[in-house]
Nucleic acid binder design. Structure first.
Lengths: 208, 208
DNA sequence: TCTTAATGGATACAGTCGTATCCTAACCGA
DNA sequence: TCGGTTAGGATACGACTGTATCCATTAAGA
């Protein structure tokens, strides 16, 4: 293999450059030329590996989704034996809140995409499937937890999950604007999980 | 006094045109020429009443804040004699959630501004003061409510207010993306207010 | 009535945007 | 060794951006 700097590797580098710009200077600052400069390649190279700006933007959104997925799995793995329903919820909600610099940047980019999708139907299709899938998944887990008697029978799992996800999103927004620290946001989430699952040992998020 | 088509009236028309574009096509679709077209005036008129695009954008943000303020007061007035702490909270949270087409458009524009402010320090100063002021105000009300014995003494007013505001923001986001209806979001908010204030008569938001 | 300031139409300017084209190299299998 | 594909440099095109300038019209104060 001669030329072969690897097609996919190149695309990954460019996508990362795109996300770096989107998270620090916003999605409107993303242009073909800016990406080329950020990745230290020529404009032609960006055009070569992505036919469109549209294709480039979609690649960025896909990568963000993959990173989020990776973070959730990491937390689930870190919780080790604690595969309790509460452990799953804590892992997902903990993965949503920006905890370190990288997840903060990713959240900023994600917010930028989400906002753009609200007025751009092209992005809406790609971007809004993840939240729905998450809600369905968590609701299923919480329903079995309720059947096992782990939470009050008068709670509605779907409503509880919707509220927790909305809470995490709202808290994320306040963390991104530096209204609140990550720790303060995580404490609020824990508090609500305690209320939901009743008095029992708290799973510590154990972040940085 | 010269021509007197009223300077302020003209500026208001242009600001409204700006917000109409921002809420339907996004903040990146806002240009001097687009505003001129939307307001059915010439480009020169837009330039005449606003020195900068920056000044125009700031005017839009100020107007959005004023509208939100108006909506909160309207709900507070509609709650009439119900000036209980819970009534105040219900009014504010109900005003945050998009309930009709106009408030939906305003929320979309607000979200666009908020996202832009995350990466544009110029907007951050103007835009992020309102949420903080709201949180302080509501915390004060909830604290006196706690001293009067209306809520559990082991609740932390600041945390509760922060959680409710974050919840409302997260729900707003899901309403905007049509993941959830306004009614579903309002029900979740009511549910949490019930939990906070204990079993008592619920203030009905009475929104179409 | 004359002057002057307010108002706004028409046009221009220098950038930046996404995209397209032209032209080298370098490497492949045949 | 010879096409042919892959990879990328250089440049150009038309559209759009914010802003500035030139000019005409109008109304109010003197």
């Amino acid at each position: 293999m001669p030329k072969q700097v690897d097609h996919d590797e190149r695309r990954r580098q460019l996508t990362e450059a795109l996300l770096r710009i989107a998270s620090t200077r916003g999605l409107q600052a993303v242009s073909m030329r800016e990406i080329a400069a950020e990745a230290e390649v020529s404009l032609r190279v960006v055009q070569y590996y992505f036919t469109n700006k549209q294709a480039l933007l979609e690649s960025g959104l896909t990568e963000l989704g993959a990173r989020m997925d990776r973070r959730v799995r990491q937390r689930a793995a870190a919780a080790a034996g604690e595969l309790t329903p509460r452990g799953v919820l804590a892992a997902v909600l903990g993965a949503i809140l920006p905890s370190d610099e990288q997840s903060r940047l990713d959240s900023l980019a994600w917010t930028a995409y989400y906002t753009a999708a609200l007025t751009d139907p092209a992005l809406a299709a790609t971007g809004l499937t993840l939240p729905n899938a998450l809600e369905d998944f968590l609701t299923a887990r919480l329903t079995t937890a309720q059947q096992a008697g782990d939470i009050d029978p008068d709670r509605d799992p779907r409503t509880e999950v919707a509220a927790l996800l909305a809470l995490a999103n709202g808290l994320t927004s306040s963390v991104l604007s530096r209204q609140r620290s990550h720790e303060a946001a995580a404490a609020i989430v824990d508090y609500h999980l305690d209320r939901l699952f009743g008095p029992r040992a708290t799973l510590r998020p154990s972040l940085d």
